[in-house]
Amino acid sequence: MRTKAGVRAFDVLSIALAAVLVSCLALPVAVLFFSSTPTEVLQGFRDPLFAPALWLSVRTTLVSLSIIVLTGTPLAWWLARSPRGASWGIKLLVDLPIVIPPAVVGVALLQTFGRQGFLGPVLAGLGISVPFSTAAVVIAQIVVAAPFYVQAGVNAFRSIDGDLLITARTLGASRAGAFFRVALPIALPGLVTGASLAWARALGEFGATLLFAGNFPGVTQTMPLAIFSALEADIGSALVFSLILTAAGAFLLFGLRMAPRGVGWLGGFGVRRFEGEPPHLS
């Protein structure tokens, strides 16, 4: 028989355990936030490593995210519409990079694109050398970040009632029309969430990039790699770089939380309300 004291003890224990985890998550971020003065932050901005690394991170993550969205959307659509049995193997392959350590991904990419790797001789014949280039940074980001987008996309597309697509087709929409006019707008909040997660993952990518692309300022040195380099020379700069990445992450998280509402408003997901005259047809 449950006693009042027993229930209370359970509540106290649960809260205490949860508080330990929250402290573990919040403490490092709080310490990081308070470890630099405004003057030190300004000095960090002037560090020669900072601007090229930030610019490279922005450029490479935008390119990798564009490729992920362009290729991941049709893949997610196909995975969502296929019988689970048929798509099981592909889904497993897509998810694999999430559970593989980034360093292993880096080694695998070297084995694939390296001079002595699987595609190395073919690429060399074409005069292309991928490892230790900006292209290698993008490839590493795509491999580690794409699963997050595809996973979110599959969930978003799978939640669409199949009758909506049948209805759209009976109303004259082609397969592509039903996708673009019905499935895509309905799945958009989920896709935006997935894209934000993928971008955050690409922005923070370190291990695979270090092994596959190296750490060359202006060419392959992204923000996480710049932090790694700065730690060896000037911990102040490393702290500032870390603060900036944390701010970018927090911004993305905020965007994630607001995305369904925001995208809903843009696309008219029932959040938007019109007054007066009926709207024009879209």
Binding site: L164, I166, I186, F269, F274, P278
Partner: peptide, 17 residues
């Protein structure tokens, strides 16, 4: 003309659309 169970209205479009 097909009206499925649950009506199948497109949630992202107004009634007019």
């Amino acid at each position: 003309g097909y009206v499925p169970q649950g009506y199948g209205l497109f949630p992202h479009l107004t009634v007019l659309d």
